[in-house]
Nucleic acid binder design. Structure first.
Lengths: 194, 194
DNA sequence: ATTATTTCTATCTACCAGATATAAGCTATC
DNA sequence: GATAGCTTATATCTGGTAGATAGAAATAAT
């Protein structure tokens, strides 16, 4: 599955729920799929052009002018199912917090602590947002998509909770560090072992 | 923090542990930091060139020839601490599994189940790898870095466990779906609500 | 010694993320 | 009710990155 196909999948999927303009696509993806997916204009507009050329999508409303929205064609629906059936490609991990903590010996224990606390705080915010989304879903807004949306919300909750638990693990480990005064964090530490 | 600075941070950090060639850097980053960080040649070599120009890193061994390794200079160590102190930038989420499940109505319940099972299986593998890494760490390989490495391993464990728990949630939700026969997954479903 | 094969190192290209530009509606003030 | 300023909506542009590919050195095989 080529890289850009991933964007096509998201765009076709969103249009399968409701016709939208390119701008609206970005907004919807950000708001509804935001906690596990993201697209930028630079991906969406080329993808729409390509999809239109292939007849998977049609432009509706005053062309040339603005606020033209795109609609899924029958071929587009078929293509969407094909794309969804392909194996997902996982993106490369890049966790800036863990990178900093791995080199925590250079950064110093206090800064490490702050980093962990901030991360925990963000995770708590996300957990609250997921619970709110779950409550809103219970009011029955999404029709047939509801159980599937629930699955993605559950993922957000589990992930946020795991981050909170890990933060507490990390704080405990950092606390044991302080007991041994060891090297001052701002002076040159000895060359690392190995 | 510019984007390429992220790579500089990883490169300087790795070199702070031991001098290495560009190729070895890639290997080390993949093996040791692999579960939360990744770099490609296309990032590492330009970063090394830039770091050398700025005097943060020096080329050691037979220049011109091969197997030249890079060493951190004193200025490089200072720079590394600066970079580590900057706020981490979080990368955009792109979870292909959740994307597919969100549009599960188009994909069909059976394919969804398979997707979840595969994800759980991968998470179990990762959990085992993390536990092995923790055991190896207990044998005392990394010197002063040990507690920090432990923190990143704990993150891997928590994350893997969360994925496993979520997979079980998801399977339960999918099971309730089957009870209502609803629409056949391969025939055109009615337009989604909203 | 010479060729084949693997490993190590570096460059090159198509594509993406985010910033920036442009256009359309909306509000307020005269 | 006209016009200037402001906000929202839409599209393009550019620097930078990922992964593929090329090239060089060493090792192994014959």
């Amino acid at each position: 599955m080529a890289r850009s196909d991933q964007t096509q999948t998201a765009v076709l999927g969103a249009l399968s729920i409701m016709p939208m303009s390119g701008y609206a696509l970005r907004e919807e993806i950000k708001n509804t799929l935001g906690h596990f997916w993201s697209e930028s204009f630079g991906q969406i507009y080329p993808a729409l052009a390509e999809l239109q050329r292939s007849g998977l999508v049609e432009r509706q409303g005053d062309a040339g002018g603005r606020s033209s929205s795109y609609v899924l064609t029958a071929a587009g629906t078929v293509r969407l199912r094909e794309l969804l059936a392909e194996p997902p490609q996982q993106n490369k991990p890049r966790n800036g917090v863990l990178l900093r903590l791995f080199f925590g010996h250079q950064l110093g224990p206090e800064a490490c602590r702050r980093l962990v606390l901030e991360t925990r705080s963000r995770a708590e915010t996300q957990l609250a947002a997921m619970r709110a989304a779950r409550a809103e879903l219970a009011d029955g807004n999404l029709g047939e998509n509801s159980p599937f949306a629930l699955i993605t919300i559950a993922a957000g909750e589990r992930s946020a909770q795991a981050t909170i638990d890990w933060a507490n693990d990390a704080l405990a480990i950092l606390a044991t560090l302080d007991e041994v005064p060891a090297t001052s964090p701002l002076r040159s530490p000895p060359a690392a072992a190995r």
